[in-house]
Design a protein around this nucleic acid. Structure first.
Length: 485
RNA sequence: GCUCCCAUCGUCUAGUGGCCUAGGACGUCGCCCUCUCACGGCGAAAACAGGGGUUCGAGUCCCCUUGGGAGCGCCA
């Protein structure tokens, strides 16, 4: 029986969780679940200079928000530095590693010369076979792997296939820095081994690393995990996603009003496919996911498609969950709209009852909340341009005529209101649209809104009559002789 | 520069030598539904980067060109 699948997501806490990292996490999560295994989380914080606590927090929060739960305790790589150094000692003793005293300046000069002469930029192995007695005074050495100089290193990758490197093209990488701390290259190998990782699924920017890491595995006499290097995600223009180019933290997607379920669905289809299927529930994803159907070319991030999917899941979502999601966004949503950082009980209730009509039309939670403007608009209601255009004099006169009918309406329900309005339209020979549009404008301040009768029902009689009153015919508030408005 | 990878509609992709006059989805455009906007329905435009092979037959296999990408740190 094969060992249980254990995957890992191993971000470095030098920034937020970006979209590519999120997809890598998703793939690891899916693969582990698909085969009844576990996904571990390891924070690769061996770069003491750049690793930060806030970044770790952002990554954990991002994963939690996305719904990608990891198994077991979070492993902090730097805490294992002792173990890493121990392994390097073994390697040193076995003659599979050596001390290198080359200075930074020497290394830089080496690269410069190579660049000038058009040779590959590699460490030339100058301390590889040199007598340690020649070591310069007072220089702390780094420990390098004594990599094989002949033959080849082959990696069998679930996505990239079988790829071969000539060992002469790979140099002796640093395992331990001069200050005694482990490098990433060493730490990953030791940790993946110690954590019994069976499948390493990561971005293909690590592809060459797989070859170099294989050399470390070989030196240690350990078997390698199985590899799957997934293509990177590019920006909409095809350029690499970077911090100054569209690489947003996952929290930004949350604030733009995307749902985790939509993001998961969008991300799973970026680079992976299952025939013609586009919509996947979590259960379907887990059941269908495998490494074999991951494509080999980079994908571009497309907001239009994400929005479409988000709209789909918005429509499908439970009303209460959506109200809760909006409530969670209020700290950023509220203040710019003249509201507080929370939803008051009254607005919350109105939002809940208007939600069926609202979620049908929105692509993001932000859009949804803006479309709900009529629920929280201050009085007097400000009309936008299109709404104002709808309210010409004939329209205002019509509204004035409808007012009393609404005041007297016996049934303040969508159906009852529709009957009342339709009756008015019929009696006056107007088309429903001629009545409904001005009404919508007066009630919502916009030319578009959820179904008018739902809007009226949620708003309530008093608010509707008040807003209608605000749009009373101009001729009745000002004498015809005065054209001032 | 060196090593490695990639290449089907604008975008995500199906396609594993004949089922392809290349399918789906998003987006775009048109029509229908309709109180607006969405949703939904119907329809349209839209791709095998180029050139050589192999084969009875190539989007699918091989080579070259072109174009993209990744890596080449005492970063991860």
């Amino acid at each position: 029986m094969p060992p249980p699948v254990i995957t890992r997501f191993a971000p470095s806490p030098t920034g937020y969780l970006h979209i590519g990292g999120a997809r890598t996490a998703l793939f690891n999560w899916l693969y582990a679940r698909r085969f009844g295994g576990r996904m571990l989380l390891r924070i690769e914080d061996t770069d003491r200079e750049r690793s930060t606590e806030p970044a770790i927090g952002a990554i954990l929060d991002g994963l939690a928000w996305l719904g990608l739960a990891w198994d077991g305790e979070v492993v902090h790589q730097f805490a294992r530095a002792g173990r890493h150094a121990e392994i390097v000692d073994e390697l040193l003793t076995a003659g599979r590693a050596y001390r290198c005293y080359a200075s930074q300046q020497e290394l830089e000069a080496m690269r410069e010369a190579a660049r000038r002469e058009g040779r590959p930029l590699r460490y030339d192995g100058r301390w590889r076979d040199r007598d340690p007695a020649e070591a310069p005074e007072g220089v702390k050495p780094v420990i390098r792997l004594r990599a094989p100089s002949e033959g080849e290193t082959v990696i069998a990758d679930h996505v990239q296939g079988r790829v071969t490197w000539q060992n002469k093209d790979l140099d002796d990488l640093v395992l331990l820095r001069s200050d005694g701390t482990p490098t990433y290259m060493l730490a990953v190998v030791v940790d993946d081994h110690d954590m019994s990782i069976t499948h390493v699924i990561r971005g293909d920017d690590h592809f060459t690393n797989a070859a170099r890491q294989t050399q470390i595995y070989d030196a240690l006499g350990w078997g390698t995990p199985q590899w799957a290097h997934i293509p990177l995600i590019h920006g909409a223009d095809g350029a690499k996603l970077s911090k100054r180019h569209g690489a947003l933290g996952i929290d930004a997607y949350r604030e733009m009003g995307y749902l985790p379920v939509a993001l998961r669905n969008y991300l799973v289809r970026l680079g992976w496919s299952h025939g013609d299927q586009e919509i996947f529930s979590d259960a379907e994803m887990v059941a269908a996911f495998d490494l074999g159907q991951i494509g080999r070319s980079a994908a571009r991030f497309d907001f239009a498609k994400l929005e479409n999917l988000n709209g789909h899941y918005l429509r499908e979502a439970d009303d209460r969950d959506l109200v809760a999601a909006i409530e969670g966004l209020m700290p950023t949503l509220g203040p710019p709209r003249g509201l507080g950082p929370t939803l008051g009980p009254d607005l919350k209730a109105k939002l809940a009852s208007a939600m069926p009509g609202l979620k049908e039309r929105a692509k993001t939670l932000v859009e949804l909340f803006d479309a709900a403007y009529f629920l929280y608009a201050p009085s007097p209601l400000v009309l936008d341009v299109k709404a104002a255009a709808l309210l010409d004099e004939p329209a205002r006169l019509r509204l004035a005529a409808i007012g009393p009918r609404l005041a007297a309406a016996t049934s303040w329900t969508p159906a009852g209101l529709e009957a009342t309005i339709r009756a008015y339209a019929e009696e006056t020979g107007a088309k429903l649209g001629q009545v409904a549009q001005p009404l919508r404008a007066a009630l919502t301040g916009r030319a578009t809104s959820p179904g008018l009768f739902d809007v009226m029902s949620v708003l309530g009689r008093a608010a509707c009559l008040a807003r209608l009153d605000e749009q009373a015919p101009r001729s009745s508030v000002a004498p015809p002789s005065s054209s001032a408005a």
